[in-house]
Design a protein around this nucleic acid. Structure first.
Lengths: 217, 217
DNA sequence: TACTTCTGACAACAAGCCATGTCAACATTG
DNA sequence: CAATGTTGACATGGCTTGTTGTCAGAAGTA
């Protein structure tokens, strides 16, 4: 009965000086970045687990440690990109408070330059998320709705006493968001040839036009 | 040497009273309709050759008689739908000549009611064609460009002497097309709950606003 | 040092689907 | 009637990929 008490290292221990949570988080981040990179360049349907792992410098097992499948990666990548974009727009807005014209200009500048500086992100958020599955479509729809709501709310903030003349504010905001998306898509698909200033100017024209129209009745 | 001259029926003969061309065309049409149906309801990536053939009531061999692969079917289905939509808009336009307001109203009515009456077509042309392959993306881009060009040309026809104030007409038209698409998508994804009139009204507001803005400088 | 966990490279298995092939039954022509 | 084209049901091969498993070596712990 003199069983020598076997050494019992607990699992979840540190490795190379980093805790298990930190390692996990690091791998997760690597996979997320790699996923955005691969999906943004090859397209979602040409993206394999193997390719993402190769890009991340990890083996396939760790993929399933972080994501249950490719679709989960896509969703998280999408959410990540949208959050980044939101933040960028938000900070640029807070620098130009309450002056409608410069507000719009700043927001549009943030939007279009972000897409140009991250073409992979642009492709993912505008093209690759569509038509993947009902789940992903739901996320997309939600994001669109949020942006439209944000646009409508911002306008309401600038013109509080404004009557809506019975028009569907959200539907119009949805249209305007669609205008921005389509302009961006055209700009992207043409390889960002035109200057950001001219694209911003066109977008500004549309937003201001509708704003004026709603104000003047 | 009295080899009896073997009967030599030419191939490509009639069958059940229809010529080979007619049978081929009939099968092609059946497969196209079935493809639109299946892709429009299940989504392109969930669509298999087998399912399309089952829907068409044909065997898989005939699929490859008409299409080299699923992508070819998707492209032709897309082109078919766009042509239908164009025709529908065109005929409704020719009935309301040269009166800007009713012109827009008629075109928007055709557009939105077409989508509502053919939700499968709507899904295919707005969602399923995106992110499939560079080839299909090219088609999509071309269609968008054509619609934008059509919109810009129509406007030029109504206001020939109009100065463009240096703004990029095509970029603005692209934005407006995007607005229409996004409104339609929202309408579709919410199950066409709102009345077509209210959607048309919102779309009209956007188009008229930009038009007015461009006219008044 | 002895034992355990962690890691990475790779194998293995199952599943799905595209694309083609086989074969018997039916239709047509001479 | 006989020979051949046509059709439909079904089978088959082959490829790709997702997902899990194996195993040896490195790193940590008692």
């Amino acid at each position: 009965m003199s069983t020598p008490t076997p050494p019992k290292p607990r699992r979840g221990r540190a490795y190379r000086g980093v805790s298990i949570e930190a390692r996990r988080a690091e791998r997760h981040q690597k996979l997320l970045d790699a996923g955005i990179q691969v999906i943004g360049s090859q397209g979602y349907h040409a993206t394999t687990v193997k390719a993402v792992c190769a890009e991340a410098g990890l083996t396939e097992r760790y993929f399933y440690e972080s994501f249950s499948n490719s679709e989960a990666l896509l969703c998280e990548a999408y959410a990540h990109i949208i959050a980044q974009l939101r933040e960028r727009i938000g900070t640029s807005l807070s620098a130009h408070q309450a002056q409608p014209d410069t507000l719009i200009e700043a927001a549009l500048n943030s939007y279009f330059t972000y897409l140009r500086d991250h073409p992979g992100h642009a492709r993912l958020m505008m093209v690759e998320v569509l038509g993947v599955s009902p789940t992903v479509d739901q996320h997309y729809r939600r994001v669109m709705e949020d942006f439209a709501e944000f646009l409508a709310a911002t306008r309401r903030g600038l013109y509080p006493a404004q009557d809506t003349h019975g028009v569907d504010e959200m539907m119009i905001a949805t249209g305007l968001i669609g205008a921005l998306v389509n302009m961006a898509m055209r700009w992207m698909l043409s390889g960002f040839r035109e200057s950001p200033e001219s694209v911003v100017a066109a977008a500004r024209t549309v937003l201001l036009a509708v704003n004026r129209h709603l104000l003047e009745g």
